[in-house]
Design a protein around this nucleic acid. Structure first.
Lengths: 301, 301
DNA sequence: ATGCCGTCATAATCTACGGTTATGAGGACG
DNA sequence: CGTCCTCATAACCGTAGATTATGACGGCAT
């Protein structure tokens, strides 16, 4: 009984939103580049798998049912996310001749850069951007050595050989699963509560871990679990293993969805700046300036 | 040249995040219920398709590369969205014996209800909720007739036979593609600008269309295009066909991603309330009250 | 050292899913 | 009433992806 097969192939979802947009299976099939019977069968299979009527079929065309609209809306979100991912992948792939090379720390590369680059691509389709991903320190190193035009870092400690522009403030948040005892708390957590609780953390060297250790300099408790990626940490938290401290950029979505709960904490400043950096004295090119402007206006969160 | 085949099957993405979480292809394969060679091949295929090294393989296990982490992060988001969709589908499917039946108008069902129900499911896994989707008027009708326990509507005109609780304020926004002339505007739009511009709109009877017509009662211009779903409208806007007026709930994500641009408008109140309604005098059950509380605290946007 | 445990990759095989073309049924419309 | 569009069904076929079996490689104990 492979877990809900309908959720694993995007073809039918593409078809469904296309039908919603054009009111016809035949037309949708044409758009997606498959034959009409194939499209018909895919959507029928989707309906069968979901046990929901998605389309109102008629010889004059097909329209979405109420359920169909809801599903199509979600499908649209899924596809948009995939599209974003496509963009991120595209920019990480070494391009033949990028007009602009930028380096970004993990958090920025994961959560911010794709949106910036997508905007840039929409307004300036001619500019090819290459993206390199490393930690905040190495980003600055690359900038200083002139290997990249622009860097994005999430640290407060800037190399004197770079100029910088502050873009926004990131914030770390304490998160737990909705079933965790802390989720029901009404009082804020104290700094000492946090320091004495074993947490799920990233490995040493990660920007998030370093920030956490710096803030909690009063000897933090031994980690409950050390994991190699933010995704892994989030997974463990959702599974109810324990609490973690992560960037709001990483958990915002999950908190909004109610899959994670943020716990307020008193007496600690968990903010950190996100900045663009470039080599001191370096005159920024046209493309760089456009990207910088995009990033600065992008999300003044 | 079927468009980028790697983006169409979620299996490999599932595998990738599982590897990130457990540091081993073998373990990930076990978790996903496939054989180890299958997993190995799927991920290898993914890397080939993306032209990116995602894993650092060793006889002691596998860890994500920097690129792998970025991709895994996006994959996580994609999968989370799919999971949400699964939840929405699950609640729309007629259940054997739902403990609680709610009705929601389109906007709520599309954008709010899944998050509420997901939260509810996390804290009260025993409660089965049935969800019916119709327009705001019919929702109230169902509530009055006692066919549903609770309703959610996005309209200001409430039936006198229901009690209600205001949950949040929705807002309509004028949106255009980033390439549209209005996207570069620095001055706000005037009400008369909007009234005289042909827009892409929903069909009559849709809550969004009705709200728009009510606000723009000074005879609005003939529609540029009439489409049957919010997704269709968004698609047309992104394609650069023209401007549209849609709920921020529907376009928020796209605006944040830079795929759509909101244009400020002066002299018009585009807000509308979102409320929970139930039959006057009806004593709410335990499950209803929990859901109501969840909805109220969910997103006080 | 050496043998055992784990990891991952490759090879050979087979099934079944999803694609295609061809055709038929049904309403809309001149 | 015939034509033209819609969508569904049927028969056929190719291939992607699964499986089992096996081999190479490194870590770690004895």
């Amino acid at each position: 009984m492979r877990t809900q097969r309908w959720a694993s192939d995007l073809g039918p979802l593409r078809l469904l939103v296309a039908v919603g947009e054009h009111g016809s299976i035949t037309e949708a099939a044409r758009l997606e580049g498959v034959s009409q019977p194939a499209a018909s069968k895919q959507i029928a299979a989707l309906e069968r798998a979901m046990s929901l009527p998605l389309l109102r079929r008629a010889p004059s065309g097909s329209t979405l049912t109420a359920e169909g609209e809801v599903v199509a809306s979600w499908a649209g979100r899924v596809l948009a996310t995939v599209e974003q991912m496509r963009g991120a992948v595209e920019s990480m792939r070494v391009h033949a001749d990028p007009d602009l090379v930028v380096a970004a720390s993990m958090t920025v590369a994961e959560h911010l850069a794709p949106a910036w680059l997508s905007t840039l691509r929409a307004t300036r389709p001619d500019v090819h951007v290459g993206l390199r991903v490393t930690n905040s320190h190495d980003v600055q190193e690359l900038v200083v050595r002139g290997e990249v035009d622009l860097g994005f870092v999430e640290t407060a400690t800037l190399d004197p050989r770079v100029e910088s522009r502050r873009l926004m403030r990131d914030r770390l948040a304490v998160v737990v699963a909705p079933t965790h005892a802390w989720a029901a708390r009404r009082r804020s957590l104290g700094a000492e509560d946090l320091a004495r609780t074993p947490l799920i953390v990233r490995e040493h060297g990660s920007g998030t871990r370093d920030t956490l250790d710096r803030v909690l300099r009063a000897n933090p408790a031994d980690p409950l679990l050390v994991l190699g990626s933010n995704e892994a940490v989030k997974g463990a938290v959702k599974a109810g293993v324990g609490a973690a401290v992560l960037s709001v950029l990483a958990v915002g979505e999950d908190v909004r969805r109610g899959q994670l709960v943020e716990v307020a904490v008193d007496g600690l400043d968990l903010h950190r700046p996100i900045s663009a950096v470039w080599r001191r004295g370096q005159r920024l090119g046209d493309a760089s300036r456009t990207l910088l402007r995009t990033a600065a206006s992008g999300s003044p969160a």
